[in-house]
Amino acid sequence: MSAATSSPTALKTPGSDSHSGPTLSLTLKIWRQKDTNSPGELKTYEVKGISTHMSFLEMLDVLNEQLVQKNEEPVAFDHDCREGICGMCGVMINGQAHGPDLTTTTCQLHMRKFRDHDTIVIEPWRAKAFPVIKDLVVDRSAFDRIITTGGYVSINVGSAPDGNAVPVPKENADQAFDAATCIGCGACVASCKNASASLFVSAKVSQLALLPQGEPERVRRVQRMVAQMDKEGFGGCTNTNECEAACPVGIKVENIARLNREFLRAKMITR
């Protein structure tokens, strides 16, 4: 969703036919797992006649329709908005979180990125803190629990001052906005060899550290959120920056630097 970061490749000549076009035959290797406690395995499926204008999830819809016709259980995958904003979708596609397209969620990935006869391996996010629920669906409630420990401003309804009472420099507001666009999909965790949630936590800590409204709870917030992150079983950050590369909305690792600063600052203040 972030502006300017993605330039869609292979743009067509304007006004030309957008409907017809080549179709693809694909081999899909998909992780099937009955429930959290059962073992899973990759199963192979063939799909044909996939239009290059389809989204990745529409391709999975076609597969599922086929499976229903054959009396087999469809592949479970999470999704809702299908426009890259709710953060519900997300799978590993050939080992990459959300697939090959930069700053693109799984639901916004289109089949024109693939070639005829490609084999595509589709797996769920893998992380200790994100147990598999079924097939490609994982449990990300750890993220909610982290936000619960301080990803908010303590303001009751009715007690807010006028919206323009506190001016916020535009640069700060814009930077806070960039951090606030995190969709909480978990791609950062899935792509990190340590399964660290640092990018996710840093996005919220940064947003609120950059705004005057977040100031009063700055110390407590960062300490509690980091402690909860550790408690949930996410790994530590070793600065490999895979998270930034995988993030579908372009959250920058400079937020992690800010998280570290905020954490140190909190330590000094509370010592």
């Binding site: 908010y152 401003v153 303001i155 309804v157 009715g158 007690s159 807010a160 001052p161 006028d162 919206g163 506190v166 507001a173 814009d174 806070a176 906005f177 606030a180 947003q207 609120l208 705004l211 409204q213 977040g214």
Partner: peptide, 9 residues
């Protein structure tokens, strides 16, 4: 007012 106070950018 409420949203600004919550930190909505």
């Amino acid at each position: 007012d409420q949203c600004v106070a919550q930190g909505v950018p």
